[in-house]
């Protein structure tokens, strides 16, 4: 009698084990798949538009470097309250350029290269102008995007 009992017990334990592990199995297979399907934050392969910040984040007559994908972009709010966005990579030797208030120019610290606010190389070693990005305003927000 007890032999039969233990047999019965073993059987029900096995059933319990089998059903729980099946549930566990589906969970462990489905979890990665479901998270995979959940779209990531950056929902495109290539960055085309980036939020640079709010208008109030930028002081008048100053510049700020923002990240555009893997590239730095210099966003300038000019004295005349215009917004401009240019690639911050110096065309000479890839240093990061900055806005120089005193000169009203974009300046590269490495070799004293200078660009005007349209990105044109005006002095020093830079061989080419800086790439210009597009600025879009949406309410208080400033967006930077690649020029088509």
């Amino acid at each position: 009698m007890s032999d039969l009992d233990s047999n019965q017990n073993r059987r029900s334990f096995l059933k319990y084990l089998l059903s729980t592990s099946i549930v566990g199995f589906f969970a462990s297979v489905l979890y990665p798949i479901v998270s995979y399907l959940n779209p990531p934050k950056q929902n495109e392969v290539e960055v085309s538009t980036v939020l640079a910040g709010k208008i109030s984040d930028f002081e008048k007559d100053s510049g700020k470097i923002i990240r555009f994908g893997n590239k730095p972009v210099l966003v300038i709010r000019t004295e005349k309250d215009e917004f401009k966005a240019l690639s911050a990579v110096c065309t000479h030797l890839d240093c990061t350029v900055q806005y120089k208030k005193e000169m009203g120019l974009i300046w590269c610290a490495c070799h004293n290269g200078k660009y005007d606010l349209t990105g044109k190389n005006v002095s020093g070693p830079p061989p080419r102008p800086l790439e210009v990005y597009q600025i879009n305003k949406q309410g208080e927000n400033i967006f930077v995007s690649k020029k088509a």
Partner: peptide, 16 residues
């Protein structure tokens, strides 16, 4: 964790 779960399932299937 997942290897453990799959192994457990394999074992119970074997016993079954």
């Amino acid at each position: 964790v997942s290897v453990f779960i799959i192994s457990l399932l394999s074992l119970s299937l074997y016993l079954y």
